[in-house]
Amino acid sequence: MTTYILRRLIQGVVVLLAVSMICFIIFRYLGDPVLTMAGKYATQQEIEEVRRAFGLDQPTHVQYGRFIWNALHGNFGKSYVSRVPALGLILERFPATFELAFTAMLIALTLGVGLGVLVSLNPSSWPSRLVMAGSLGGISIPTFLTGVLLIMIFGVYMGILPPFGRGETVQIGFWRTGLLTADGLKHLVLPATTLAMYQLAVLLRLTRAGMREVLAEEYIKTAWAKGLPPGKVIVKHALRNVLIPVVTMAGLQFGELIAFSIVTETIFQWPGMGNLLLQSIYETDQPVIVTYIMLAAFLIITINMVVDILYAVLNPKIRYD
C-alpha cells in the first residue's frame, strides 16, 4: 500500500513538472513579456533595463529554475491588469467554484447512482425507460443550452430562483461561503443543476450498466441463496462492486468540474475561477492564465491521487499488487 501511494505521488510530481514546462513556455515565449511590462513607448535602453531587472536576459534553464523556485513559494507573478499577485486573485475565487462543483457533484452522485440502481432493477418498466431516455438528453444537450433553458423557466417565467450571481455570502476565515445563507443556497440551485446534468447522466448510465452486469454474477446468486433480504443483496453485495468504476469516474468528473466549469460560470455570472480565467484570456493576462493552468493541474492530480487510493481501498485485487 505504501509503495502504491508512493508510486502515485512520484507520477503526480512528474506530470506537474511537465505542465510547468508548458506553462513556462507560454509565459516566456508567447509574446515578449518585457514589451508588455515596459509599455509601447519605452526606449531600447529602458527595455534592456527591464529585461535585466526581471532576469529575462539569463539563459533559459536558469529562468525555468527560477520559475519553479518561485512557483514552489506560491509566487506566480502579478496580474498585468490588476497588479496584485495572480495566485491570490485566483484563490479568492476558489471557494465559489469549489462550492458550485461540490454541490453539482453531490447531486450527480446521489441521483446518478440512486437512479442507476433503481433503473437496473426494473429495466423494462416505463419509468426506467423514461429515465434512460432522459439520460441520453443529459449527455447530448450542451451545458449552455441547459443553463439558458433553466434560467428561462425558473428565473424568468416562474421567477422562483435567481438566475445569476452568488447571492448573500458569509466570510469564514479566508473562505467566503454561500452555503450558510438561504439566499446563497437559492442562487446555487440553477448553476449546480446545470453543471450536474451531464455528470449525472454519465454516472447513471455507468451505474446501470455495472449493476446489470454484477446482478448476473454467480456471487449474487450466492447472496440470495444465503437468505439475505433484497436490500442487502443489492447494496452490500452488488452496488459495492459497481462502485469501483463509479468512484473512479466521479473523481475524474470532480476535477473537471472544479477546473473547467467556465461555461456554466459565465452563463450564471458566477464569481468563480472559470469566470476569472475567461476574463484573463480576453485581456491576455498571462500570469493569471499560467497560474490557473498550474492550479488546475495540481487540483486534478491531487483528486486523481485520492481516487486511486480510494480505488485501492474499494478493490482488494489492486491493494496487493
Partner: peptide, 26 residues
Amino acid sequence: SAMRRIRGDRIAMIFQEPMTSLNPVY
C-alpha cells in the same frame, strides 16, 4: 420473507463455479 428464513439456514446451496460464487470485495 419466510422463504428467506429457510434459504441458507435450513436449505443451503453451493454452486458450480467456486471462482465466481464468492464476492470479490469481501
